[in-house]
């Protein structure tokens, strides 16, 4: 009975959508603001990657809101699950074999290096803070699955996350303190396609990468412990 009603409702919605799909033709330019960002992006922000200059330069305040949402979700998860941290290992998991253990220990610094490279070069190649942070968190996930008796130290992860968040807000407030807007680009822009260019964009992306990586690793750490 319920399934019939749901299928009927979805058919009505699908009919309405097919009637209005002619208004959005595929492959034809639809907005005008994209042309302005592409034409003036390199000389106004200095970064060669246009998506980075939109995320951090033109719409940097939305990125601040997104980091706040991720922070609130991490705190909510920690408060609801309510683990208390024992210093002993999780005894109900048997240890992995020698090949898996050695392979995980070998791969862990390599994956950390790839993640750090991706968020440092966010303004030159496709990449950035969120992608690099997710790759760092998946390196920690590999460590939890392969070698089950190593844990990250809680104070180190808290300190790294705190430094990342405070750097982002401090860079924004410096822009406000010298008389311009919040998140104003006050460092010199330099040559495009160099590593030290584009003003505050590398600093902001390094802060975002460290914060997102340690938060996502902290989510996995909270879920895997006994409560």
């Amino acid at each position: 009975m319920r399934k019939l009603f749901v299928i009927l409702l979805l058919l009505i919605i699908a009919g309405g959508i097919t009637l209005s799909l002619k208004e959005i033709p595929f492959g034809i330019p639809k907005t005008k603001i994209g042309d302005h960002f592409i034409n003036k992006g390199v000389e106004e922000t200095g970064s060669v990657n246009i998506v980075t200059s939109v995320v951090v330069g033109y719409r940097g305040f939305d990125t601040l809101g997104e980091i706040t949402v991720l922070f609130a979700a991490t705190i909510g998860l920690g408060a609801v699950i309510g683990t208390f941290r024992k210093n002993s290992v999780n005894r109900e998991v048997e240890a992995a074999s020698l090949i898996v253990y050695t392979g995980c220990r070998f791969l862990f610094p390599v994956i950390l290096l790839v993640g750090t490279y991706i968020f440092i070069h966010g303004h030159l190649t496709p990449g950035g803070g969120f992608q690099g942070g997710a790759i760092i968190a998946s390196a920690f996930l590999l460590m939890y699955l392969g070698c089950s008796n190593k844990r990250i130290k809680e104070n180190l992860s808290k300190t790294v996350e705190m430094i990342g968040g405070l750097t982002f807000i401090a860079v924004g407030i410096i822009g406000l303190a010298i008389g311009q807007d919040f998140l104003f680009n006050f460092l010199p822009k330099g040559e495009p396609a160099e590593l030290l260019s584009a003003g505050i964009i590398p600093i902001v992306y390094i802060a975002i990468g460290l914060k997102v990586g340690s938060e996502l690793a902290g989510i996995i750490d909270n879920l895997i412990q006994k409560s």
Binding site: P29, T31, I33, I50, T74
Partner: peptide
């Protein structure tokens, strides 16, 4: 070039989805 604005918005949306 393709439009860069929807790509910036979807980047935010993916991270909020996982949160």
């Amino acid at each position: 070039m393709v439009d860069p604005v929807p790509q910036a918005l979807v980047l935010t949306a993916i991270v909020i989805g996982v949160a």
